[in-house]
């Protein structure tokens, strides 16, 4: 877990096993939830998706419903693990900060115009905003999902109006989530963001990339310089130094 500079490898340990495990557990269970969730609407059969090899089960509501429930259990485990772990450790690096909208704009502008980006901490401002957006979608889709689970129990009935609200909010927030995930993945269309990708697999990122783009984080890890002075005087790092080998 420990974030630290690994000078021998010319890398920085960004995520530990727990972080990567949580990320991929959330990702895979969410994928299963999206696939099985769309299966709750009568679309896989009509649009011939169920006719594709190995996908016959997608048209069977009893199967997709069980997949949806099982994946929801996995997601609930991972999400509560993530929340409780970070709250206990008071690790709020991913919570948006004041000015993140403006900073995100500047970072994206820097990527487009190929200019120097403002210094960042462990996470870029737009990563914190994306996290908040996904967390909000997860909250709504999760709460309405749990209400739908309740409603499925034989002893529970909701009013007609509540059913419409719960169902439509669940569907709508699921679409928000899909949009959020697409945007999250679209970040890697920008070359500048790609050095972050190995961190989700090996946990490590290139040291020069960190020095260049995550200067505030680097300062914290190395104990050199204050965030304020770094913000005021961004270091000039030659372009070739930020390439990942």
């Amino acid at each position: 877990m420990a974030q630290k500079i690994l000078p021998d490898e010319n890398k920085v340990q960004r995520h530990g096993f727990r972080g990567r495990f949580t990320h991929w557990t959330v990702a895979l269970s969410t994928l299963a939830l999206i696939v099985s969730g769309f299966g709750q609407m009568p679309m896989y059969k009509r649009y011939y998706i169920a006719d594709l090899p190995g996908l016959g089960w997608t048209a069977d509501y009893s199967t997709t419903l069980i997949v949806h429930y099982l994946a929801a259990m996995v997601l609930l485990f991972a999400v509560t693990f993530h929340l409780v772990f970070h709250v206990i450790r008071k690790d709020y690096d991913l919570i948006p900060k004041r000015g993140d909208f403006r900073t995100s704009y500047l970072i994206i502008k820097a990527m487009v115009t190929e200019q120097e980006a403002p210094p960042s901490g462990k996470y870029l401002a737009e990563q914190r905003l994306a996290y908040a957006f996904l967390a909000f979608s997860f909250l709504i889709v999760g709460l309405t999902g749990l209400l739908k689970v309740l409603k499925n129990l034989p002893s529970v009935n909701f009013s007609a109006q509540a059913m419409v609200w719960i169902s439509d909010l669940h569907t709508l927030s699921a679409f928000l989530l899909v949009f959020g995930i697409v945007a999250h993945l679209a970040a890697f269309l920008f070359r500048e963001n790609r050095p972050l990708l190995p961190a989700m697999f090996t946990g490590k990122v290139n040291l020069n990339y960190v020095k260049h783009r995550h200067r505030l984080w680097y300062a914290r890890l190395s104990g050199k310089g204050s965030a304020v002075s770094l913000q005021e005087a961004p270091a000039q790092v030659p372009e070739e130094n930020i390439r990942v080998s």
Binding site: L65, I66, M73, V74, L76, F77, F85
Partner: peptide, 23 residues
């Protein structure tokens, strides 16, 4: 058709508890 799904509801209660405990 809901019998099987309803039979797994305990898992939806246990999963977050297990997640919190593990964390």
């Amino acid at each position: 058709i809901l019998d099987t799904a309803n039979g797994t509801v305990a898992g939806l209660v246990i999963a977050p508890l297990a997640g919190a405990f593990a964390a």
